[in-house]
């Protein structure tokens, strides 16, 4: 079997990313799209964008990750389905060999991953609360009527960052409003917010863990220079933001698909680019077979059922292909 290219798909809460790498693991294409609450639409759009450059026959493997990985796997026909923590760690240690600490802040969650000799030794993820993640920054930028891309730039201009309560997004917001009504200028408030989020991240996730150099900062929020600066200042060390920092999950899962192929060549289950034009629909129903009343999701492709998700007992999802059912 000839080794072609590998497609990695990361369906996150805020962004959906696609990365294509070739057999030598060079990145051919990296796409960052907003999920906008419709993962399937974003997925189709992503496929449309790589369709011109990549031939269907070339694809040797497909991997999916992110919180929507099972959905994407069913629709695409994925060979590898992995959690985003592993994917991020693989991508970071590939682009930045010798990395010891990964700070990852995405749309809904933030992660801290510690590695030694390229092996993950510890990780932490934010708990139930999404304070201090990308969507909160997004919200605040919107409230202040600043494009989120400009957020970091403005924060860097601050002379005297104000102190903002960072433990909870609701507290942070009311604190910001208080400071704003006192007349503090907006740059100082933004810089203060960045510092508060970094403090919150370190309090919540690091919890006294020792963070060794090299420290890599990735995920969508790494685009924000204000956050990068705040991390560097508080940790007192250099922060590396790798190229492709915003599609690291997709890159990681593409690499995993490639590594698995190298270990044991497989025939891909990729369904082909037709999916980009297919009519994808989902339907929820409440299963009545036991008192758990699971809200099962049924996925249609061109009016044909391709799979089920979210049943606790596996009554429906065991009909999906075996590899997926194993993850349940």
């Amino acid at each position: 079997m000839e080794k072609g290219v590998f497609l990695g798909v990361d369906v996150g809460s805020v962004s959906t990313n696609l990365v294509v790498i070739n057999g030598e693991k060079e990145i051919l294409k990296a796409i960052y799209l907003r999920t906008n609450g419709r993962p399937l639409v974003a997925l189709k759009e992503g496929l449309r964008q790589i369709y011109d450059q990549i031939k269907e026959e070339e694809i040797s493997g497909v991997g999916t990750t992110g919180s929507g990985r099972h959905l994407a796997a069913l629709v695409l026909g994925a060979d590898t389905v992995k959690n985003e923590i592993t994917a991020h760690a693989v991508a970071a240690s590939y682009l930045v060999p010798g990395v010891r600490t990964i700070l990852e802040i995405g749309g809904q969650d933030s992660k801290l991953i510690l590695l030694k000799d390229g092996v993950v030794t510890d990780f932490a993820m934010n708990t139930v609360c999404a304070a201090g993640t990308g969507s909160f920054l997004d919200q605040q930028a919107q409230r202040l009527n600043i494009p989120v891309e400009k957020f970091g730039e403005m924060a860097l201009k601050a002379q005297n960052p104000v102190r903002i309560a960072g433990r909870c997004a609701v507290f942070a917001e009311s604190d910001m409003i208080h400071k704003q009504q006192l007349g503090c200028n907006i740059e100082d408030i933004l810089a203060g917010l960045c510092e508060a989020l970094v403090r919150n991240f370190l309090n919540n996730l690091a919890k006294g863990k020792k963070l060794y150099d090299k420290i890599v900062f990735q995920g969508g929020v790494a685009a924000n220079s204000g956050m990068r600066e705040a991390f560097a200042r508080i940790l007192g060390t250099e922060i590396i933001v790798p190229p492709y920092f915003n599609v690291m999950g997709a890159l990681g899962i593409a690499l995993i698909a490639a590594f698995e192929w190298e270990k044991q060549p497989y025939k891909t289950m990729f369904k082909g680019f037709n999916v980009k034009d297919a009519e994808l629909k989902t339907e929820n129903f409440e299963c009545q077979n036991c008192p758990n009343f699971c809200e099962v999701v049924k996925i249609y492709e061109n009016y044909e059922v391709v799979g089920y998700l979210n049943d606790r007992c596996g009554r429906y999802s065991q009909m999906n292909n075996k590899k997926l059912a194993g993850i349940g």
Partner: peptide
């Protein structure tokens, strides 16, 4: 899953000897 990968299937991230991109 991530915990399982980290503790049992350690091989995934063990590719650090590969050349940098």
């Amino acid at each position: 899953e991530a915990f399982w990968d980290m503790t049992v299937e350690r091989s995934f991230a063990g590719e650090s000897n590969l050349p940098a991109h």
